[in-house]
């Protein structure tokens, strides 16, 4: 039984790129949610949490409509010379980023909220500007939150199915990921292959969650 490496590579690449984008975008978003008193905050929170409850096919469907060459976003994007967003790897990245957003923003938000405001005040009186305070005080103290966010974001992207199926198709070497390959094997009644992929995904997900919980436990020891 050999693993189709193309599928594994597409999966890892998708999860890696999505996680990176999520960390870059999720960090300011989570920090804004931590500090803001704005009235639109509950709306933003609900939007971020939406993928937790929404059937992935719903998200996938809307993305397909919006991002397709005839959709408003897709048409505009392609008029700027951007690559096609449906049935392509960039499209998968867009879907994955939206779908895994709560898994990155939530742990970051929790970690940011746990940083005492009085330490930020202390840094401010020691002449550190807001960005400086974020980099030198918030980020080091929220390190376990970043680790959790990155692992959960990565693992959740690896585990997604509905969104990928809707907007990715199943193009081998381009948009076919492990969960889709598993589905295809089952459709073709190739149970041995299906068992193999299912076991890999199960083992991977369990290890990731175990790592997250073990790390969080280690960081829970009193630090102040």
């Amino acid at each position: 039984m050999a693993l189709d490496w193309r599928v594994a590579i597409v999966t890892a690449k998708l999860a890696g790129v999505s996680t990176l984008i999520l960390l870059i975008g999720g960090t300011p978003l989570a920090w804004w949610l931590t500090r803001t008193r704005s009235r639109v905050r509950p709306i933003v929170e609900a939007l971020v949490a939406l993928p937790l409850v929404l059937p992935p096919t719903v998200l996938g469907f809307y993305l397909l409509v919006l991002l397709g060459p005839a959709g408003p976003v897709g048409r505009f994007w392609e008029s700027l010379g951007g690559p096609r967003l449906v049935f392509s790897f960039p499209g998968l990245v867009v879907g994955s980023v939206l779908y895994s957003l709560p898994f990155v923003v939530q742990p970051l938000y929790n970690a940011f909220r746990a940083v005492p405001t009085r330490l930020l005040d202390a840094a401010a009186t020691l002449r550190a500007n807001p960005l400086d305070r974020f980099i030198t005080v918030v980020m080091p103290l929220a390190r376990p939150g970043f680790l959790t966010a990155a692992t959960l974001g990565f693992a959740h992207t690896v585990g997604e199915f509905g969104v990928v199926l809707m907007i990715g198709g199943s193009i081998p070497g381009k948009t076919e990921v492990l969960s889709i390959a598993l589905y295809n094997h089952v459709e073709a009644l190739q149970y041995t292959e299906a068992h193999f992929l299912a076991a890999i995904l199960l083992l991977f997900s369990f290890s990731v969650l175990l790592a997250v919980y073990a790390l969080n436990r280690r960081f829970e020891t009193p630090r102040l």
Partner: peptide, 20 residues
């Protein structure tokens, strides 16, 4: 003027040292 441009030393009851 924001606090980081004032140049004030602030010592609180809790000391507020950076734990990291």
């Amino acid at each position: 003027v924001p606090p980081h441009r004032r140049g004030v030393g602030y010592i609180s009851q809790d000391a507020d040292l950076f734990p990291h």
